[in-house]
Write a protein that binds this DNA or RNA. Structure first.
Lengths: 248, 248
DNA sequence: CGGGGGGTTGATCTCCTTCAATCAACGTGG
DNA sequence: CCACGTTGATTGAAGGAGATCAACCCCCCG
C-alpha cells in the first residue's frame, strides 16, 4: 500500500514532500538534523481517531499525506468542524497537554510526529520553528475568521460555493496550476462532513449541490468528481469578490 | 477626561495596567526599555475606525483600555464580527502590511502602538515577544474555533446565552471575582453589535434577551446592566457543559 | 441475495428573518 | 420648555430558508 511505502521512503527530511510548507520549513540543515532524531512516522486509517477531545496529548506533528478534520461536538451530538487538516498542517498545541478537539482521519493519513516535551524543548532553542509556527497559526486564525463569516452570514448556497472554492483554490496551489480555465478535483469529504463544516444538514448540502449543478456552476461526474468551468462564477456564487479579496 | 489622563499617566511600562497580559508580558526590564522607546499612545473615540479593511497598516499595538471589534463585511453589507478586542489584546499582524478586517472602537479606547517595522525588527531579536505573541494567537485561534461552533450549530437562544456567559466569564476574571454566586456586568455591545457577533438580526437578539429575562435566566436593569443569578443555569442554556469544558 | 453506507429527493414544519410600528431616552434649537 | 429628530430597543405579523422526517436509489461487499 502506498501509505506504508511512504513510511519507509520519507525517513529523510531532505526529500519530504511537505518540507517547504510544514512547521520545519525555516529550519537550517543542522536544525533539521536534530528534528530528525526525535521524529517518528505514524499511519492512521480512514475513519479512525487521531486524537480524542479531552484526552492527554503526548505528541504534536504534521500531516504528511491524506486529510484529517478538526471537530467539536456538543453533548447532544451536534458537531461542528472547525478545521480541515491538509498535508503540511500542524496538529497539537505546544504548552497545552489536553486536546481541545477531535482529530479524525478522513482518508488514510501519515503523520510526522514529535513527542511533545522534546519538541517544546527544541522550540525554545530553535527560533526558526517558533517563527514558522507563529506564521502558520496566524494563517489558521485568518482561515477560521473567514469561516466565521461563512457560518454566520452566508446562505446555504453560498456556503457550498465557498467550500468548493476553497477546496478548488487549495487544490490549484498544491498542484501548481493557476485558477484560470477549468478546475477539476475530487471532493475529499462526504456530504455529512461538508454539512458539519458548513453548519448545515446533509440534506441541504445535497440539495444545494444539485442546484449548483443544475445551474451550470459546477459539473459532477459521480458523487465526488467536480469540474469548475468558471472559477469567477463560482466565487460570485460564494458571495466573494470575484477578483481580489484573497488573503492567501 | 479620563482617557486623556491615561495618555499621560501610562508612559511608564512598569505600571501599565495590561503589563502582565499583553504582548510584552514576558519581556525583561531591558527588553521593556527598548519597547518603551518605540511605543506611543493613541486614543480613538467610540464609533471611530481604528483600521479599515484593505488599508495599509503601518503599526501594530495593544488595546490598553476600552473595547474594539474586529469585523468583516460583504459587498452587500452583511457583516460578521470575528473578534472582540479587550484590554491587552493585540491588533495587527507582523509580516502582513494590509489589514484584513475593520477594527472599530466600540467605546473610547487607548492603544499602545508600535510602528510595524521597528516592532518586527525587535521581534526577531526578542524571542520573548514572539513567544508571547504565539501564545496569544493560539488562544485567539481557540476562541475563534469555539465561536465557529456557536455560529454553526447553536440556536438563537443558545447563542445569546453563549455570548452572555463569555462576557460574564471575562468580566469575572478581569475583576478577580469567582464565578460563584451572582455575577453583575454591563453589556459592552449594542443589540446590533451582538447580532453581528452572533450571526443573527438585532430583532432576534432583542427577542431572545427578553425571553431569557422572562424565564429568569438573567435580570435586566435598563438595557445594558445584566445580573446572572445562576451561572450554571446560564451555561446550560448556552448548551455548554455546566462544569468543565472551559479551555481558559 | 441481503445489508449497509453514501446520496438524492419529497413533504411538512419551524425557527428565524423581514418588514413595520411603537417606545424610551437624549439632545438640540426655536 | 417643548416640538423635533435621532438612536437604540422592543414587539408584532407574515414569509421563507433550512431543518426534520421519510422514502428511495445506487453501488459495493460479504
Amino acid at each position: 500500500m502506498l501509505n506504508e511505502r511512504s513510511l519507509a521512503v520519507h525517513q529523510d527530511c531532505s526529500d519530504c514532500p511537505i518540507r517547504h510548507r510544514a512547521v520545519c520549513a525555516r529550519c537550517e540543515t543542522d536544525e533539521l538534523q536534530r528534528l530528525e532524531e526525535i521524529k517518528y512516522y505514524r499511519r492512521y486509517e480512514a475513519g479512525s481517531h487521531v486524537i480524542w477531545s479531552g484526552d492527554r496529548m503526548d505528541f504534536v506533528g504534521s500531516v504528511v499525506s491524506g486529510i484529517a478534520t478538526l471537530t467539536q461536538t456538543m453533548e447532544d451530538g451536534r458537531t461542528q468542524m472547525v478545521g480541515l487538516l491538509l498535508p503540511s498542517d500542524f496538529v497539537g498545541r505546544p504548552g497545552r497537554d489536553t486536546a481541545a478537539y477531535d482529530v479524525v482521519a478522513t482518508t488514510d493519513i501519515v503523520m510526522c510526529c514529535f513527542r511533545k516535551k522534546p519538541f517544546e524543548d527544541m522550540m525554545v532553542r530553535t527560533p526558526h520553528i517558533a517563527q514558522r509556527l507563529l506564521e502558520m497559526t496566524l494563517d489558521e486564525l485568518d482561515a477560521a475568521r473567514e469561516w466565521m463569516l461563512v457560518l454566520g452570514r452566508k446562505t446555504a448556497r453560498e456556503k457550498i460555493a465557498s467550500l468548493l472554492s476553497i477546496i478548488a483554490r487549495r487544490d490549484a496551489t498544491l498542484n501548481m496550476r493557476g485558477t484560470e480555465g477549468q478546475i477539476v478535483f475530487d471532493l475529499p469529504l462526504t456530504r455529512e462532513a461538508m454539512a458539519d463544516y458548513l453548519g448545515l444538514t446533509l440534506e441541504t448540502v445535497s440539495r444545494q449541490i444539485s442546484a449548483l449543478r443544475k445551474d451550470g456552476v459546477i459539473e459532477l461526474e459521480g458523487k465526488r468528481h467536480v469540474t469548475i468551468p468558471d472559477m469567477g462564477r463560482l466565487m460570485e456564487e460564494a458571495g466573494d469578490d470575484a477578483d481580489g479579496g484573497l488573503l492567501i
